[in-house]
Design a protein around this nucleic acid. Structure first.
Lengths: 207, 207
DNA sequence: GTCTATATCCGGATAGAC
DNA sequence: GTCTATCCGGATATAGAC
C-alpha cells in the first residue's frame, strides 16, 4: 500500500549505490521526497532497518530477473549477458553495485546487514555457477577449472569493473571487459568469433 | 623527521582500508596514537590533506615494490604473483585495498583525491599490462585478447576478490581465485600443470 | 502517517596558550 | 608541535500534536 515506504527504499538505494551507506542521510531522502525526517523514522525506526530493506529489495528483484532470464534463453552466454546488462545500466547512472558499495563498508555495518549482504552475494554466485554448469552440459559455454571459481571470476569482473570504469568515467571500459569475459566462454566452432549474441544492447532496467 | 606525521598516515590508511574514508575520524587516530585531535590538524589541516597523503604514500610504496619485483623475476607469472601476495596480506588484516575502498566512495571525495586515486589505478594497470606483454614476448605468459583488457581482468579479480573473500571471512576463496588467474596465464607445456611457482607462500609485507 | 520541536551526540575545524 | 577550549554543522533518533 503506502507508496511512501517504497519511494524511501528506492531513493535510499539510489543514494547508497552512488555514495555509500555511511554517507546516506535521512535529510538527503526527506528533502528529495518532500517529506520530513521524522516521516522516514516512522517507516524505518533505525537506519539499520532501512539498510535491511534495501538489500532485501535488491535480492528480490534480482531473483525475479534471473528466473525470467532462464525462461527466455538456453544459451549460457545469453543468460549471463543479461546480468552484465544490469550492471551496465547501473554504471550509466554513475553508480556501483550494492555488493561493492556495502562490501567495502562491511565492518561498519550491523550484523544483520552483513548477513543479508552475504545472502545476496551467494544468490548471485550460485546462480552464475548454475548457468556455467548448464552451459558446459549443453555445450554453450567452455571454461577451465571449477564452475565455482569461474563464477567468482565473473562476479569480480562485474563488481570491480564497475568501480574502476566509474572512476575513469568510461563505460566503454566496462563493456570491453564484459565482452571479453563472454567471448572467453564462447565455444570455438568453425563459425568463428563474431557470432550471434556478442554485444547485447544496453539495458535500461535498473537493478 | 617528524615520525608523528608518518604514524598518522600509517594508522589512517589502516582505518581507511578497514572501514572506509568517510568512517575514519580524527578521534579514531588521535586516541590510538595517544595524542589530541588538534595535533593531527597541525600536520593535516583538512581531512582532504590526510586523504591525499594516504594515496600518495600507497602509490610510492607500490611503485617501489614493483620495481624490485621486476629485478627479482623474469617469469611474468612470478612477478604478478608478488602483487597478488600483497593483496593476500591485506585480506589477512581483514582489510580491502585502497582502490576498492576509495572507489566505492568516489563521488563523496574531493576532486584532488579522485585525481590521485586515478593515478594509483593507472599505475597498477599500466604495470600489469607491461608484465603481460613482456610475458607474452618471452613466452612466460599466454592469454587471449589485448594486454590492456587482461590487465583489467587481473585487477578486478584482486579488487573485488578481496572484498568478497572478506565478506565470506574466507581467505582461501581469494587464494583459489588468484591461483586460477595465474594458471590461466601459464603456458601449457609438456611439463603440465603443477609447475614450479604455482602457489607462492603468503607474504607478510603490508601494502 | 506526517508534522514540529527537540534531544543527544559526534564530526571536522580554529584560536590561542604553552 | 602539542595542548585546552570552543565553534559550528549535521547526524540519528524521540516525543507528542495534528
Amino acid at each position: 500500500m503506502s507508496t511512501t515506504r517504497d519511494e524511501i527504499i528506492r531513493l535510499a538505494e539510489e543514494l547508497v549505490l552512488a555514495k555509500g551507506f555511511n554517507w546516506l542521510s535521512y535529510s538527503d531522502i526527506s528533502q528529495k521526497l518532500g517529506i520530513k525526517n521524522a516521516a522516514i523514522h516512522y517507516h524505518f525506526p533505525t537506519k539499520e532497518d532501512l539498510g535491511l530493506a534495501i538489500i532485501e529489495r535488491d535480492r528480490t528483484m534480482i531473483a525475479e530477473l534471473m528466473a525470467s532470464w532462464e525462461q527466455q534463453h538456453t544459451d549460457a552466454i545469453d543468460i549471463i549477458s543479461e546480468l552484465f546488462g544490469v550492471y551496465s545500466s547501473i554504471l550509466q547512472g554513475c553508480q556501483v553495485c550494492l555488493i561493492g558499495s556495502l562490501g567495502t563498508d562491511m565492518l561498519t555495518l550491523p550484523d544483520a546487514m552483513q548477513a543479508e549482504l552475504k545472502k545476496l552475494v551467494n544468490l548471485i554466485l550460485i546462480w552464475l555457477k548454475k548457468q556455467l554448469e548448464k552451459g558446459r552440459a549443453n555445450g554453450t559455454a567452455v571454461f577451465e577449472g571449477s564452475s565455482t571459481t569461474h563464477a567468482m571470476v565473473l562476479l569480480t569482473n562485474m563488481v570491480a569493473g564497475i568501480q574502476i570504469a566509474r572512476l575513469h568515467n568510461n563505460t566503454k571500459e566496462f563493456h570491453t571487459l564484459t565482452t571479453h569475459a563472454l567471448n572467453s566462454l564462447r565455444p570455438k566452432d568453425a563459425t568463428s568469433f563474431p557470432s550471434s549474441s556478442t554485444s547485447k544492447s544496453i539495458r535500461t532496467k535498473k537493478l
